[in-house]
């Protein structure tokens, strides 16, 4: 029963990892940008949630109404003000600039909120659970997982059924020709980053409600998100969800064997999949 429980809890945790990963996957798909600061942006969203909930004394999930647009706006400005200037054939500039951004965000958070761990308080939902077939399934993990499924479904719909998604795919295929269609790629990239950080906002709030966080929490979130993307296969959003679940299950099985092995076993599962299936389990795009 312990093992089944570990697999169920791991699957639900995988939803959170998919939320970490979805924004990363999205911007890689549109502009081949790997955002090293992605994890720190998730933590930034969590802190933003902290400030909003404290200032307006509201539930963190209600605070999403403010945090999502704020992060999206920040994403658009960040893309047009900084990141657009780094895009080109050379992979170094975007990598190093987002790396610098990561250090800046971490230390700015340290300055603003100190190194003390913080947590978002969502009330009763945090401890409530349902008994399903003898397993205690927490409402929070369940909501987290269903949110991840919903987010992936919405992103999938935007990508394949809307004019915005068509613009994303066109710019991703061929930037020059997309410009000839009247698409301003700088604007399209800005919108992609805005969407990515909107998802990041949701991920940040769930992170903050689930566990405590501090300014140095970001990099590990980036790595979990990255592992989910690679396990699932580049450019495949449903694959990313599957990747998150595999990572979550690997971690909770590891933790079941030895509490110290939780994170390590996730990394090892990732490396094994990388060795056996270098393009991930459900690849759709070349790296």
């Amino acid at each position: 029963m312990d093992w089944i429980n570990a697999i169920v809890q791991g699957t639900l945790l995988g939803g959170l990892y998919a939320l970490f990963a979805a924004g990363l996957s999205l911007i890689f798909g549109v502009m081949r940008l790997v955002n090293i600061a992605h994890g720190d942006l998730i933590v930034l969203a969590a802190y933003l949630g902290l400030t909003v909930t404290a200032a307006l004394s509201m539930n963190p999930f209600v605070a999403l109404i403010l945090v999502v647009p704020l992060m999206a706006g920040f994403g658009y400005v960040l893309q047009r003000g900084v990141l657009n200037w780094t895009l080109g054939d050379d992979i170094l500039p975007p990598l190093l600039v987002t790396f610098g951004l990561s250090v800046i965000i971490q230390n700015a958070l340290l300055e603003g909120y100190s190194a003390d761990p913080q947590k978002l308080n969502a009330g009763a939902i945090e401890v409530a659970s349902a008994n399903i077939g003898g397993l205690a399934v927490g409402y929070l993990p369940l909501v987290m997982f269903l949110t991840a499924v919903l987010v992936v479904a919405v992103l999938q719909w935007i990508f394949y059924a809307t004019a915005l998604g068509r613009a994303f795919r066109a710019v991703s295929d061929n930037q020059d020709i997309a410009q000839l269609m009247g698409l301003n790629r700088r604007h399209v990239f800005g919108l992609a980053m805005a969407l990515s950080l909107a998802v990041t906002a949701i991920a940040g709030i769930f992170l903050g409600v689930r566990t405590s966080f501090d300014p140095a929490t970001g990099p590990a979130r980036l790595i979990f998100g990255f592992e989910a993307v690679i396990i699932g296969g580049l450019g495949n959003l449903w694959g990313t969800l599957a990747g998150g679940v595999i990572l979550g299950v690997a971690q909770s099985i590891g933790a079941q064997i030895n509490p110290g092995w939780q994170i390590l076993s996730g990394h090892i599962a990732f490396l094994i999949i990388l060795a056996v299936r270098p393009r991930g389990l459900f690849p759709r795009m070349d790296g």
Binding site: R169, A170, D173, N174, A178, Q179, L180, G182, N184
Partner: peptide
């Protein structure tokens, strides 16, 4: 280019260059 496209100049580029994922 995107501004010029809006003014009414279109190009059929060499080698077709269709959007593959569309």
């Amino acid at each position: 280019a995107d501004q010029i496209a809006g003014l009414g100049i279109a190009l059929v580029p060499e080698g077709r260059q269709l959007f593959q994922s569309l």
